[in-house]
């Protein structure tokens, strides 16, 4: 584990201030490559095209959730409800995805709408009530889980059309569809964050909410958009998961929000808001995926895997706070 974050430590030791975030991300990338090299030396099965495809496919759901939660965390908020949103949207989409009922676009749109609604609900309560996002989304997490169980009557919704199952299980030109979806939404989210006025406002709101307000930024609007967006991306993850396992599972997605938050944090998004990048989050998600895949290949039981993952998360946050301390 020690080698994992070494590059990051060196950047923390030298506060060459303006370029620090760039170097931090560079460090993360090096850590990622080091882990990959080590794993491919230990288990020859790691560095095969098919295994790498499996990793990215598995990572895609967590990454989509992590993109959404990165937006939220950058504005200084948090969203704990996305795991439940995965279940609700998966169940809802599955209900409209039985063979010979609706064209495949219908379950996708209905699922997306459900996710956007749950996200908008979060945004509305957070902006109108001033209740902390942690508590609001904790409530929505429970509500969402309940809704998924009500809608599905507690049973998995199966018998889905082949065209729906293609979304998460198909291939285009030999590339699994989840990978394509991941790349497309990575680009969209990156551009949104880095190149648009809205993205800039997200950083401003998370960096200093009151100063953002005094600069004429409509806080509520930014927050509404961010939580709605997060819900939408969670819906996408829900649809993808349902399609891949060919069942709408009301119990799916339990704890997914924590993996997504972990990916964002490992990727350098500060939980105090105002910093973070999509590239960092993507690498964070890939790192989690690669490590758990590697541990699988080495036949490490899932019990130990959880311990390892926890250490990585804490390590990343400790490094983040050391970094902030050095510069603050």
């Amino acid at each position: 584990m020690k080698t994992l974050f070494k590059p990051d430590l060196t950047t923390a030791d030298k506060p060459s201030r303006t370029r620090l975030r760039g170097l931090g991300q560079y460090g993360l990338l090096i850590a990622f490559i080091v882990v990959c090299v080590v794993l491919s030396l230990i288990t020859p099965r790691f560095l095969t095209v098919s295994n790498l495809m499996i990793i990215v496919t598995q990572v895609s759901i967590n990454a989509l959730l992590a993109f959404g939660v990165t937006f939220v965390i950058i504005t200084g908020g948090i969203d704990l409800s996305i795991g439940s949103t995965v279940a609700v949207t998966g169940v809802v989409a599955a209900m409209f995805a039985h063979p010979d009922t609706y064209p495949v676009i219908v379950p996708v749109l209905v699922g997306l709408a459900a996710g956007l609604l749950l996200g908008a609900f979060n945004g509305l309560v957070i902006t109108k009530s001033k209740v902390p996002p942690f508590i609001v989304t904790l409530g929505t997490m429970t509500i969402g889980r309940g809704l998924a169980l009500i809608l599905s009557k507690g049973r998995p919704v199966s018998n889905l059309s082949d065209s729906f199952n293609f979304i998460g299980g198909g291939q285009v030109l030999g590339i699994p569809t989840p990978i394509i979806i991941l790349i497309v939404f990575f680009i969209i989210c990156s551009v949104l964050l880095r190149k648009t006025v809205l993205g800039r406002y997200m950083y401003a709101v998370g960096g200093n909410e009151q100063a953002a307000k005094a600069s004429g930024i409509q806080l509520n609007k930014v927050k509404m958009v961010v939580y709605t967006l997060c819900g939408g991306l969670a819906a996408l993850a829900g649809i993808l998961l349902t399609s891949r396992i060919t069942t709408g599972q009301p119990n799916a997605g339990v704890g997914f929000e924590l993996d997504a938050i972990a990916a964002a944090i490992i990727g350098g998004t500060s939980t105090s808001g105002g910093t973070g990048t999509m590239t960092g989050t993507l690498i964070g998600a890939l790192l989690i995926g690669v490590i758990s895949n590697g541990l699988d290949l080495m036949n490490v039981t899932s019990y130990y895997q959880q311990v390892v993952m926890g250490i990585i998360i804490i390590g990343a946050v400790v490094l983040d706070s050391l970094n902030q301390h050095k510069n603050g």
């Binding site: 800039r200 960096g207 009151q210 100063a211 953002a212 307000k213 005094a214 105002g274």
Partner: peptide, 21 residues
């Protein structure tokens, strides 16, 4: 500090924050 600027943002981004449109 409270209302003026975003500390973690660059000089450039702070300067244009109110007129980004």
């Amino acid at each position: 500090k409270g209302l003026g600027f975003i500390p973690g943002m660059s000089v450039k981004h702070n300067i244009t924050l109110g007129s980004l449109s």
